[in-house]
Structure formats: structure tokens, C-alpha cells
Write a protein that binds this DNA or RNA. Structure first.
Length: 659
DNA sequence: TTTGGTAGTT
């Protein structure tokens, strides 16, 4: 073994130093000068280490050999190649470097190759592909430019390299150049170019490619077909994606996955799910990509039953809880309000990565499980996982959610220790933390001292806190800062209007409302969803077209009477969206989540948990009403609003009123 | 005798 290391060290130095000549065993293996020059010229830490690592890296030896064809190890391959250049062995070796993404070793093999296969088209294509796959596009381009002859494979390898490195423009410009050089693209070239086009904003080129594929019959190829479906789906043009998909002569799992992912990205969970069922009926087997898309699409809708059904399907089909599927499943459970299921997934995952830790941390934080968040964070640090900006956002959210101001400040400082630069979202959370705890002045000072320019979200956090603590003056100031930056958002207008309303300043309320009319600010309707027996029902405030309208009305009146008896006082602000006192008396607004709650009471068995989702932030009045209702009606209520969960149980809420 | 398409936590 020792002999091999030394002899190879010598040859590697030689290879780098004088690549043109044929390598031989008589190379100067003790040449420290050669080693030194390598260190300088190539920027390697130690060429000796790089050379020997190919021999000592058990992983490489295990993965790389013994070779299935020749039965010899990578190590032997290098030796044999150096002694007697052999086409098949060299090809094998460069392919191994490509597959294992071993750029440094690949360079060494390249240096050996230059002496004997300089003019060889296929060998050059192999080398070009190695650099492209290892992500070194400069070297790939250089090899390409120095090749005496190029063919479709060379161009394709280069295009694919640029596409996979995210250098889309570089990939795309090669297509006309290729045609000018009279080299014909094939199905490999086209599928790669279509992939690049899918992530570009310019649709014109993609459509031209589509035309080219139709004209030359490439549409029959399953790779080209799937890439076309994917391209249109990424442009959010699901209609065209679907019609191409339906017209495909040959389809496989990837074609289905491309379309399902298209629906998933648009948050169309039900459509994604119906495609999933169609896929099963046609005897296609879902892959990890399918499950990942489906779980992702269901987590954006936030409902549980259908997600559980797909999870059960995955278990039955024998699919392992691998990598990214585990993470999307965990995230789905956390976002659907079942943090217990998210914990189970976390504990059963074969391999945890940073995303897994962050997902559960975020889940805990959003569910108001402050101490669980911090304990998990400590566990994560103790096993040496490096926290990211996402990790710290979850930690700060947890602190804000449970009102731990000092801890929040501590963790904000801790970010420096881990060299994590605070983003604007971290500042927003800190303002939220101070604001919810009623430390409004401190929140304002924090904003004034920010090293980056505060945006509308930062001022919005302060405005929200002012609404909560009924601070008129500071609220108006924060709102003003927001209107300077963006005068079209309805959220801050409504918050400001509510602040004035709760103080009885009707003139100011009217002013804000007229300002909204002048600026043509439209309020998004508040919608609440509730899932009952696999079916999602949606409600808006003052819903008066629902078939069960009267029963719902009666049920809410019953609940409302009961909770008023034990101390619930409706906040007057809930009716202040109306412009005057008269209108207020004419119509009493019942918020959409209350209607959804009454509907769920009518349609679910006693004792079962009610899960509601709302598209905007829950108001203090509803928060208080649900606390009372959970006790009086004996129901657990899990309510998800814009970014957090409120778990109402026996008269209290998981967020400890830091809503 | 080398080149291709599908998922993504804040």
C-alpha cells in the first residue's frame, strides 16, 4: 500500500507539471520543487494530500471499485492507466470522477489523458462532461473551446452543465450558435434547453423550442415531452401543460410528477390530489418526487385528513421515508396543526438534515411551544448541526410567541457567534417580540437603531403592537411610515382604522376610510376554512347564502349567549368596519372564523377537535371568544392564521394571549 | 460511444 501511495504521488506531481508528455514510472517522485510549484500555481492546499486521498478515501474505493467490468479497483485503474494508456480504463476512471463529483481527481486524470487522447472526440466529451457535472463551467468551456472537433454530445454536455449550474442565459445562447455551427440538436439537447427555459421569464424562446420539437418529431420522446410539460407548468400555464401532457404519446412517472408539481406550486392541493388518484388508476407508481409534491401542496392548504391518506398510501406502497420526502411530510403535519405527527415523522426519519431541524423548530415556534423549541435547538447544537438564519427566525418567533423578551434578545445576539447575518425578517420578529410584550418604546428604539432600512413589515409589526395595546400616537406614526413606502396595502389601513375606532375617534376612522377610497385600496375579504369529513368548507363574514345559514346563526347565538354568561365581552372594534353608528346597529358583523366554528359544531361529534384556518390575522375579540368557547363547549379548537397556530383548550390558549 | 426531464423548510 505504501509503495503505491508514493509512486502515485510522484506521478500526480508529474501529471500536473508536464501534462503533455506520456507519464512513466521514472517520474521524479521525490521532487519537492514540483510539489511546491503545484501548491502555488493551482491553489491546492497540498497536492500530496489530494493525490493520496484518492487512494485512501474508503468511500471512493468502495463506490468506485471493484469495477464491474474489469474487477479491479480505482487504485489499480490509475496505475494501469499511467503505465499503459488504455481507452476503456481511462473512460471508466473519468466516469467515476464524474459520478462521484471528484473534481480534483478528475483534473489529475485529465492531465494524464492529454498525452495520449488529445484529439479523441469521445474522450474529450467525457472530460468536458466531467467538468460540467462537477460544476466547473470555466474548465468545461475551456475544454470545449480547445477541442479540434465538436459534435452534438459536446454541445449538449456544455448546455446541460450551464443549465444545471443555474447559468440559464449561457445555456440558451448556445442553441443558435450550435445551429450556426451546423450541429443538430437531439432529444438530449432539447430536454436540457427546455429545462432552462422553464425557469426563465422570457417565454418566447421556450415556445420556439416547443415549435422545433413539434416540427422535428421530438415530441414523441418521453424526456422532451416531460420537459415541455414541466416548462409550461413552471410558467404557471397549467392549461397548456395539461394539454401537452394529455397529448403525449409516451408518458412516465416524471411526466405525471411535472404536472402534479405544477399544481402543487400554485397551491392547488385538490387538483394535485386528483391527478395523484388518476396516476394510480392508470397504474403508474408514485415516486418520492410525487409524494413530496403532494405533501407540499397539502401543507399550503393546511388540512390534515387528505394528507394522512396519502401518507398511509406511501407506507403501504413500501416507500421509505427518505430525505426530502420526510421533510415535506414533517412540514405538512406542522402546518396542518398536528405538531404531534410532525414530531413522529422527525423521530422516524432515517437521516435528519438542517431542513428537518428547522422545520420542526418552526412548527414548535408557531404552535407556541416555546420550551420545546429551545430544547430542540440545544439538542441540535449539541450534536454539531450548524444553525442557519431560518433556525434563528424560528427561535425568535418562539420567544415572541410566548413573550420571553430577555431570551429573545439573548438569541438575537447569539446569531453573531454563529456568523449568521440578521435579515429583515429577524428585525420584524424582534419588533414583534417587544411590541407584543407592551414594550412599544423599546420596539421603536430598536427600529431607529437598525443597520438596514426598515421596510413595511417592520413598521407593520409596530403598528400591530400599537393596535394590541391601543397606542394611538405611535400607531399613527408607524402607519404613516408604511404609507410612505406603500400606500396600496389594505392591512395597515384597517389596523389604523381599528386603533382609532377602539378609542372612539370616529372622525379619524372616516378619514382613513376616505384615504382608502382615494388611494383605491381594496380590502381582501377575510375567509375562514374548516375541514369536515375530508371536505373543506369556506366562509366569509356575514355569509348569507349558505344552505345551513339559519342553523349556523342559531348555533352561534347559543354559543355567544353561553360565553357572555361567563364573562365574554365582545370588543366593539369588531363592528367598526362600518362607517357610522347607524350602520353598526343595522348589521352586526360576525367574523368568518366564528361562522366556521358554529358550522363545525353542527357537523362534528362532541369532543372532537375543530381545526379552522383563516387568511388574515385573528382579532383580539375572536381570540377571547374562542378561549371561552373552548371551555364552555368542551372542544379543542386549533386556529391557524397568517403565520401561527392558536390552540384553544379548556379556557386558555397556547399563545398565552401574545396573539 | 460520450449527452437529457420530475420535489424544496424561512
Amino acid at each position: 500500500m505504501k509503495r503505491r501511495i508514493w509512486s502515485c504521488k510522484a506521478r500526480f506531481c508529474y501529471a500536473q507539471n508536464s501534462a503533455i508528455q506520456k507519464p512513466t514510472l521514472s517520474a521524479p517522485f521525490t521532487s519537492t520543487a514540483a510539489t511546491a510549484s503545484l501548491t502555488k500555481s493551482d491553489g491546492w492546499d497540498s497536492p500530496w494530500l489530494d493525490a493520496s486521498c484518492i487512494l485512501q478515501d474508503k468511500d471512493l474505493l468502495k463506490k468506485g471499485g471493484p469495477d464491474s467490468k474489469t474487477g479491479i479497483y480505482v487504485l489499480d485503474l490509475i496505475e494501469s492507466c499511467a503505465l499503459e494508456p488504455d481507452r476503456a480504463l481511462f473512460t471508466n476512471l473519468i466516469k467515476k470522477c464524474t459520478n462521484l463529483k471528484r473534481l480534483k481527481e478528475g483534473r489529475l486524470v485529465h492531465a494524464h489523458l492529454m498525452s495520449c487522447f488529445r484529439e479523441d472526440l469521445v474522450m474529450n466529451n467525457n472530460i468536458l462532461n466531467m467538468y460540467a457535472k462537477c460544476g466547473s463551467m470555466e474548465e468545461a468551456q475551456k475544454v470545449f473551446e480547445e477541442m479540434p472537433v465538436t459534435d452534438t454530445v459536446s454541445w449538449t454536455a456544455l448546455i446541460t452543465g450551464y443549465t444545471q449550474s443555474g447559468l440559464l442565459e449561457d445555456a440558451v445562447v448556445l442553441f443558435p450558435e450550435m445551429l450556426r455551427a451546423d450541429v443538430k440538436p437531439n432529444e438530449f439537447t432539447l430536454s436540457s434547453l427546455l429545462k432552462a427555459s422553464g425557469t426563465r421569464h422570457n417565454n418566447g424562446f421556450g415556445r420556439q423550442l416547443h415549435g422545433y420539437c413539434l416540427k422535428h418529431g421530438y415530441i414523441l420522446n418521453v424526456y422532451v415531452g416531460s420537459a415541455l410539460v414541466d416548462m409550461y407548468a413552471r410558467w404557471e400555464n397549467i392549461k397548456d401543460a395539461e394539454s401537452i401532457f394529455n397529448g403525449l404519446v409516451s408518458k412516465n412517472e416524471v411526466s405525471w410528477n411535472a404536472l402534479i408539481a405544477g399544481h402543487a406550486r400554485k397551491g392547488e392541493g385538490e387538483l394535485a390530489l386528483s391527478l395523484f388518484s388518476r396516476m394510480l388508476r392508470k397504474d403508474f407508481k408514485p415516486t418520492p418526487f410525487t409524494y413530496s409534491s403532494i405533501f407540499g401542496s397539502l401543507s399550503s392548504t393546511g388540512f390534515l385528513e387528505q394528507g394522512k391518506w396519502v401518507h398511509a398510501h406511501m407506507i403501504k406502497s413500501g416507500s421509505q421515508l427518505v430525505g426530502f420526502v420526510g421533510n415535506t411530510l414533517l412540514d405538512m403535519y406542522a402546518k396542518s396543526g398536528s405538531i404531534e405527527d410532525a414530531e413522529k415523522v422527525f423521530s422516524r426519519m432515517l437521516k435528519l438534515d438542517l431542513v428537518s431541524w428547522n422545520s420542526l423548530l418552526k412548527g414548535y415556534a408557531q404552535h407556541g411551544r416555546g420550551s420545546d423549541t429551545l430544547e430542540l435547538f440545544k439538542r441540535m447544537l449539541s450534536i454539531g448541526v450548524n444553525p442557519s438564519d431560518v433556525t434563528f427566525l424560528a427561535i425568535l418567533t418562539a420567544c415572541s410567541h410566548v413573550g420571553c423578551v430577555q431570551e429573545g434578545e439573548y438569541y438575537f445576539q447569539l446569531m453573531k457567534t454563529y456568523a449568521v447575518e440578521p435579515q429583515v425578517s429577524h428585525y420584524v420578529t424582534m419588533v414583534d417580540l417587544f411590541g407584543r410584550a407592551g414594550l412599544l418604546d423599546q420596539a421603536e428604539r430598536f427600529i431607529q437603531n437598525m443597520p438596514i432600512e426598515p421596510n413595511t413589515a417592520v413598521w407593520g409589526a409596530l403598528l400591530g403592537a400599537c393596535r394590541m395595546h391601543k397606542n394611538l400616537e405611535l400607531g399613527a406614526y408607524a402607519a404613516q411610515r408604511i404609507f410612505e413606502l406603500d400606500s396600496n396595502d389594505s392591512g395597515p389601513h384597517m389596523l389604523l382604522s381599528n386603533i382609532y375606532a377602539s378609542a372612539g375617534r370616529w372622525d379619524d376612522v372616516a378619514n382613513v376610510r376616505s384615504m382608502m377610497r382615494v388611494n383605491q385600496v381594496k380590502k381582501e375579504p377575510a375567509i375562514s376554512w374548516v375541514e369536515i369529513k375530508n371536505c373543506v368548507h369556506s366562509f366569509v363574514a356575514n355569509d348569507d347564502i349558505h344552505p345551513q345559514r339559519e342553523e349556523i346563526q342559531k348555533m352561534w347565538e347559543k354559543v355567544s349567549t353561553k360565553i357572555k354568561e361567563v364573562g365574554y365581552v365582545p370588543d366593539s372594534s369588531q363592528v367598526l368596519f362600518y362607517s357610522n353608528q347607524q350602520e353598526k346597529e343595522k348589521r352586526l358583523q360576525v367574523h368568518s372564523e366564528k361562522i366556521a366554528f358554529a358550522f363545525a359544531l353542527l357537523n362534528t361529534p362532541p369532543g372532537s377537535t375543530i381545526r379552522i384556518k383563516k387568511n388574515i390575522r385573528i382579532c383580539p375579540d375572536c381570540h377571547s371568544a374562542f378561549k371561552f368557547a373552548s371551555k364552555i363547549m368542551g372542544r379543542d379548537i386549533i386556529l391557524r392564521d397568517t403565520n401561527r397556530f392558536h390552540h384553544f383548550q379548556d379556557g386558555s390558549c397556547s399563545c398565552g394571549d401574545y396573539w
